[in-house]
Write a protein that binds this DNA or RNA. Structure first.
Lengths: 343, 343
DNA sequence: GTGAAAGCGCTAACAA
DNA sequence: TTGTTAGCGCTTTCAC
């Protein structure tokens, strides 16, 4: 059988002091002599004391609990979430994970976090109608982290996607690429704005005739599908691009995987650029050129945004925009000899 | 500012009944008329009532909280964890995630779950010294889910790895493969036993001279590394295998990725088998032949194991062994023409 | 520097 | 069927 865990009362009895003193020592707040502190801590250690989170939360008026909503199937979101732990600890928040899974939607996850009385929630990559956010905002502080442009009346931490796409295009343009395709966010909300950066960039560079936006989402499978679509156009003049920008690394990995399966070499035959500069981009068999957005920095800003709003609920809405940078690896190279009809 | 969430007292007042009745209705236990139930539920709904988990946990003698320890960076563990939600709900447990990250080790995660007073923890893919488990067992019910053979004095749910490896070998043997390499678990605990199935299977089939075990872990990078090692032996007679078994799909994906990067076709030039039959195996650009272990079934058994031990703490240790099966996709094919010296 | 006491929201045993 | 009540482990205010 498992033992009943020791309570503060047990520590107090064992150390010969009052419960209140134990609380003071455990929470590390002023109000006890150094000598008592040492003794109590020693006893607590010996007895294997662990604070009872539920009791703390119940008693405190603030839970200091920070909910994090994310989809564990998406690797970049995982990296993002991992970065939140140290950032939250720095500001003394406890992190509670709210995972979205095939059998557990956003509402399920939110309700759970609400039951834990999280005073704030960081939503990683979550998109939803504005009205939904407005409603939830009554119950908890909301901060969104991601690349979406829409605001929905909550604080947002994101990287400058417009700039990011442009960095990718510049890089490819300088390598001689003209026929550059883009795998976007498909029908997901915010897709319009994101594709916009690509379309506009192509226009600015007088590459309008090469504009090619493929439907995507967050997955590698979308990348593989896009690759097949492009390969289907292989024989059609002007159609098969010499470079593809994917809206994230995972999708880029799918592109590379499918291209290589068909014997199309990356980067010799086609260059691929990802976005996020996630761990995946660093894999030795991919080595993706990618647009870096530092998860640590996003996380720090997100937690800071939470803290700010918790401290000052009426502060004006803030849009934290971080500057991405280009990381060149070996999934991009100079464009191969250009056929006459592609010039 | 966020509103103070309504409590049972608020509902009771609004509905003109006692708190106890509200509790009865909310928990869905017998003791209230259907009419009252309806009214109370309606009021609760209107006020947006959410039970206060911390208060429930504090009051109940059992928390009904089931901690799940895992590493979100490992896709198969994520699939495993996702399957635990429905299984836990079926037995009325709440799931609390304990994520292990680069900045957060097993002890950190365990301590957090202990503070939440989880009465049980399911450890997905966690390996640790036996003594560690013995110690923790005093504090909570522990169930391990994974492919490891070691017991550590706790209940284990796993699939029959020995059989799995044999299924893979049979499949490859029947396709004419003889020079079959294996990417194992490297220096991780339990590696010996797992490599054993491969070594023994090779001996049984009189393929001793082809035995080749490459170091691995759980990652795709390990697969890529193994592929490079094998490619380094390409020109040495007898050395480059015609088939490789990876100890999981993620590693298999790394193998395939690196092979294809070098223009080695899969399955034409080399066949690759994974283990887990995870989502990854189903990706269109990989279509890995894999040894399936159903995450749903593992999850159901794990939760059942938890329930069993919670209900009967002195029950004898149990080893839940599930039977894997072979799923043939297109990462394996008949061996190519065999060179004389390889016969 | 230390201790006493109230009460957070809820459950469960009991009384009505 | 419904209401009353004690108390889970902790924090926090106040008195000593």
């Amino acid at each position: 059988m498992t033992d009943r865990p020791p309570t503060m009362a047990d520590i107090a009895t064992a150390a010969g002091v009052s419960r209140a003193l134990v609380s003071i020592v455990v929470r590390d707040v002023p109000g006890a002599s150094e000598e008592t502190r040492l003794r109590i801590r020693k006893v607590a250690e010996e007895l294997g004391y662990r604070p009872h989170t539920a009791a703390q939360v119940l008693r405190r008026d603030s839970s200091r609990h920070l909910g994090v909503l994310f989809t564990p199937q998406f690797p970049f979101e995982v990296e993002q979430v991992e970065a939140i732990y140290p950032a939250a600890k720095a500001l003394n928040y406890d992190v509670v994970l709210g995972a979205m899974t095939p059998t557990r939607d956003l509402d399920d996850a939110v309700n759970e976090l609400l039951s834990y009385r999280c005073e704030a929630m960081i939503m990683v990559g979550v998109d939803h109608p504005d009205a939904w956010f407005q409603l939830l905002r009554k119950r908890a502080v909301i901060v969104r982290v991601g690349r979406r442009l829409s605001r929905a009346g909550v604080d947002v931490v994101r990287s400058d996607e417009y700039l990011g796409i442009n960095l990718a295009m510049n890089h490819l343009y300088e390598l001689g690429h003209r026929n550059i395709a883009f795998v976007g966010a498909g029908s997901l909300p915010g897709a319009e704005e994101r594709d916009g950066a690509y379309r506009e960039g192509m226009k600015t560079r007088r590459l309008t005739k090469w504009i090619k936006v493929l439907e995507g989402d967050q997955t590698d499978e979308a990348g593989a599908l896009a690759a097949r679509t492009l390969l289907g156009k292989r024989n059609a003049a002007r159609k098969m691009p010499t470079a593809v920008i994917a809206n994230n690394d995972w999708t880029a990995a799918g592109l590379v995987g499918e291209f290589r399966r068909h014997g199309i070499r990356v980067p010799e035959d086609v260059s691929v650029v990802g976005v996020d500069d996630s761990n995946l981009a660093r894999r030795s068999y991919l080595m993706l050129t990618s647009i870096a957005q530092d998860p640590q920095e996003l996380a720090r800003n997100a937690v800071e945004a939470v803290h700010r709003r918790l401290t000052n609920p009426t502060a004006p809405l803030k849009d934290y925009v971080l500057t991405p940078r280009l990381v060149v690896r070996s999934s991009t190279s100079k464009v191969a000899a250009v056929l006459p009809h592609q010039a």
